[in-house]
Design a protein around this nucleic acid. Structure first.
Lengths: 161, 161
DNA sequence: CCTTATCTGCAAATCATTTGCAATAAGACG
DNA sequence: CGTCTTATTGCAAATGATTTGCAGATAAGG
């Protein structure tokens, strides 16, 4: 009941930093979208974020969400990803600065996305460079399959038909 | 001047097989699109294929290209891919049955796509399964960077400013 | 050849995302 | 604390890739 600013998440704090250096402004919409992004383990789409924030700001517009996401992507604070089997929509993923570039597993049954590290990819990159020359700057790996839960559920349905 | 059917590529041959088992028909359009796909090392978009085939069949319609691509994808004869930094368009990639699932490097300068094998990914999958359970069915890896040519060109521009 | 179900061309629809523009509101300064 | 400047928003219309409904065309089997 005293402090004005709630202890903001790292993503929002990062965003505030870039604002001050570029003459940008921290608006209500941006604050809400940033908070929603930081709180989502789900790699949400623009539409999903929109509906998450809407209750807290019924005037919010979808294009504001898109503009905010594009801004954050340009600032390097989030990444956009596309997963197979979905329509042509993007999902957004805060860049956790500590954790180096991570990769994704997507369950084709429950659509859950699991993040993981793949140190071996460094070797894959090196091998590629050795064979082809040039230089590799980044790698995007997505595994598809069944997560532990769905694999268990699938192999264990009530048997007698 | 004697044989009617030119020696068709493996992709087209595969397509013909699935046709006979499903009551489908081999049309002029499909033949041309298949040939164009088989001849493209470029992972073309629907639009690119369309323009490649157009000279040989000026009546061809873009939606036919899309329908053919969707059909081939459902039959498992091609894959659709999305690369970062492009609009929301798909690129298509014949499934070379011999060569197991291959991966892609994309040059951010000339946009060239280079295919490569990454046997190490098998280990990545195993490690993931060991840690998380479930089962991995496929993996899509894309490396981004500069190809050998562009890296050389970039590091060697006429020096004096 | 004739039949008929599959395909195609065309035009309009859809879906995700972007953009122009006038109105709104940060936040700097007095 | 009010004023001013301009970044940002809401709204509606535009865009770009892809899909779909439908009537006419055409493979392929008899």
């Amino acid at each position: 009941m005293n402090r004005k600013s709630a202890p903001s998440d790292p993503l929002t704090r990062h965003a505030v930093q870039t604002l001050s250096s570029t003459g940008g402004r921290m608006t209500t919409q941006r604050r809400l979208i940033l908070a929603a992004l930081a709180a989502s383990p789900n790699h949400p789409t623009a539409e999903e974020l929109y509906h998450q924030v809407l209750p807290k700001n019924p005037a919010l517009n979808l294009s504001t969400v898109y503009r905010t996401l594009r801004w954050l992507e340009q600032e390097g604070l989030i990444n956009s990803r596309h997963f197979e089997g979905e329509p042509h929509q993007d999902r957004f993923d805060p860049v956790a600065d500590e954790k180096a570039d991570h990769h994704h597993f997507r369950c084709r049954a429950c659509n859950r996305i699991i993040e993981f590290d793949a140190p071996l990819l460094e070797q894959v990159k090196q091998i590629f460079t050795r064979q082809q020359g040039g230089q590799v700057e980044s790698a995007a790996l997505i595994l598809y399959g069944l997560c532990a839960d769905c694999a268990a559920a699938g192999s264990d349905p009530t048997p007698g038909h």
